[in-house]
Design a protein around this nucleic acid. Structure first.
Lengths: 234, 234
DNA sequence: CGGAGTATTGAAACCTATCAACAATTGTGG
DNA sequence: CCACAATTGTTGATAGGTTTCAATACTCCG
């Protein structure tokens, strides 16, 4: 496990599914006991593409991103990992995505072997886990629709609503949310450029749909409008 | 189950993962016995968005598409289902995607209840199934990258290579493949328009990377070039 | 043969990307 | 604590890839 610095490298439905309800799995006290805390400073990598999948992780604090690169350097972010999320179990033997801290993050690391054992031993947990993976699949399919067919404004609207949903209970108010990632992260997550993300947020602000008290703080002023803009069925 | 006519409605890695290795599950003879054959004519719906998820299906022949619509009618295709593929298990109680025949198709329908029972009873099958869903998740993530960061040419190149991979063994030669779906289906699958798909294929033909002996028949003339064009890591 | 659906091709428009400059923020060392 | 450098975010002008609109071919069937 590397913790490499990557900052130097150049680099609820169709729109609102809570994106990753990864926190519902109860794996027992033996499992919990064998976890070790790992601190990941912002923009450091916890895992790199191709690393062996020897551990399973749970986010305690902060936010991480799962990244992948095209040969020419284009970057794509498959998901953001927030407190409560479990990750590292998806891939077979090697990770397909790198995992980096989008903000200073704390995760707990568990031996993959132990995780697999529990899944194998306890059918109830296995079923829960299956449901969890199916949920992941569903929210990934939501993002397919977003990337395949939505405009920049629709993408940002969907993103803000989904993030607000995921953040609920994490301290922030219902209509307020802190963005734990950079504009560049948002861009690579939504298949846009930094400039387009910035312009689109500015536009949402100038039409009073949202407020931006600070760069990382968003207030959803007109949730209704945001919902319409998200081009969501629900 | 509707079989509605929808033709009237307005409507291996980062690039080459075999997209849906859904055929590796062996569910036993009792299961097989309780399946009933369903014929789905081209452009008829087998399932609609929101239908109860009471059955699990397996494709025997032909090809189907899983579709979803935005409120204004934009269509998105999440996946193509080919012979051997299992589907209908992903969603909780109701289907999130409609399923329609892209070409005349034959599927076998199994009671969902029975499927769930087997998964619950047989841990070995449950584990196989989990692996299957994880594979689905991985190939869906590949498509995220494609839709989020690839150009039209890269998308078509990736698509042709992945389809050729999936089709292997289905009778066709190594370098030849039949497209069991329309240009419009391909467009909605790749997040493009029909016109762009057509133009891009024409361009690939005029550069001798592929041949198009007929509308639905493709010969991969320069697999190497196609691989480079697909912007794939491997 | 004719007609509907499907595919191709062309011209123009549009949205987003790219290139570039500047502003704001963060971090660091004096 | 301030000053400077580096990073990050915003804004503007232009370019470019896809979409849109439109017309023409092709294909399959009755």
């Amino acid at each position: 496990m590397a913790l490499t610095d990557i900052s130097s490298s150049s680099a609820a439905r169709a729109c609102g599914r809570a994106s990753s309800p990864l926190s519902t799995l109860t794996l027992g006290s033996e499992f919990e006991r064998r976890g070790s805390v790992v601190l990941v400073p912002r923009n450091k990598a916890l895992l790199e593409e191709g690393d062996p999948a020897d551990y399973v992780f749970k986010v305690v604090a902060g936010a991480l991103r799962t990244v992948r690169f095209l040969p020419d350097g284009r970057r794509h972010i498959a998901n953001f990992l927030l407190p409560g999320d479990l990750f590292g179990y998806e891939d077979a033997a090697f990770h397909v995505h790198g995992v980096e801290a989008a903000s200073d993050a704390t995760v707990i690391r568990y031996p993959r072997q132990l995780f697999d054992d529990i899944i194998r031993r306890d059918a109830g947990v296995a079923r829960q886990f299956l449901a969890l993976v199916c949920g992941q699949l569903a929210s990934t399919q939501d993002r397919l629709l977003l990337l395949g067919r939505k405009s920049a404004t629709e993408r940002l609207a969907s993103f803000l609503l989904a993030l607000a949903e995921r953040m609920r209970g994490n301290g922030s108010q219902d209509k307020e949310l802190d963005l734990p990632m950079s504009r560049s992260d948002i861009a690579d997550y939504l298949g846009l450029t930094v400039e387009t993300v910035s312009r689109t947020l500015t536009h949402l602000r100038s039409t009073h749909v949202i407020e931006l008290p600070s760069v990382a703080h968003v207030v959803l002023r007109q949730r209704r409008t945001l919902n319409e803009l998200s081009a969501c069925a629900a």
